[in-house]
Amino acid sequence: MSTQSTATRMTIAKALNAGMRAAMERDPKVVLMGEDVGKLGGVFRITEGLQKDFGEDRVVDTPLAESGIMGAAVGMALRGYRPVVEIQFDGFVYPAFDQIVSQVAKMHNRSQGALKVPMVIRIPYGGGIGAVEHHSESNESYFAHTAGLRVVTCSGTEDAYWMMQQAIASDDPVVFYEPKRRYHERGVLDLGDGGGSLEDAPHALEDAVVRVEGSDVTVLTYGPMVKVAHAAAQAAELEDGPSIEVVDLRSLSPLDVDVIEESVRKTGRCIALSEAQTFASITSELAAHVQEHCFYHLEAPVLRVGGYNIPYPPSRHEEVFLPDLDRVLHAVETLLAY
């Protein structure tokens, strides 16, 4: 078990940084690329100190051109490198959308397996930080919809550290969504005695994890909303209310349907929770999957709780646009009233 000496408290931001550092130490082909990732360490400082330690050839300040970054990273991957590309904000990924969807995702398939594009595309995502337009989006469903990409997200420190390394080690392209409003929240990272080889990772990259066990309602969620779901479960428990199970999906493509189905079969009720607009989204997919595969176990319809189906609003609205504890509990009550 963990001891005082091996466990540290660390922010998600530092854990992501430590994960990239470990991957770079392990494999000299790992190269970081993006706008301001070098000297500045990124606008969120996630890559802070890495250029100083690994040099300008491995931590590359690129021109301000997202398609260029993505396309150049594809070329580097074809030459045998493992590029880790930073998109500065969620809403800035669209210039690179063509490269991601047409090239990154399809190269392996097009080449009938001869070519690999082992890239990681890091995207700080989600709202709640009072930002201007284009800085608060949750656009994960665009990429989860695209075959050939893996899409993952972390909700805490331990996952930030391990999932980043697993994503970099994957031979597939991985879109790695980082919950930007949680960057500076602390969690425990325990590397144990081994010092943290990849085999020590507590979960596989594509596994969902039950964060809170419960018996009445399953909340399927990910990224920044895991904390909200957790708070809802705690609040319900304090009031002797319904018992909420929180499943942290972690991987959005593929989904860990075994864990999802097992939880819903147990509770009989399901909420799919995310910051993203609900229409044609991850939460839509979850609702469809659960009704298809858990139909006879359901006591009530699957509810989606997410952003309203409007453009992400000016930040003075985001408090009501983003699902919060009350909206989750309201959905729980709705389900229990069936």
Binding site: G71, A73, V74, G75
Partner: peptide, 9 residues
């Protein structure tokens, strides 16, 4: 762009 990235490699 792939060509340039390859050349960077």
């Amino acid at each position: 762009l792939h060509a340039v990235g390859y050349a960077m490699g």
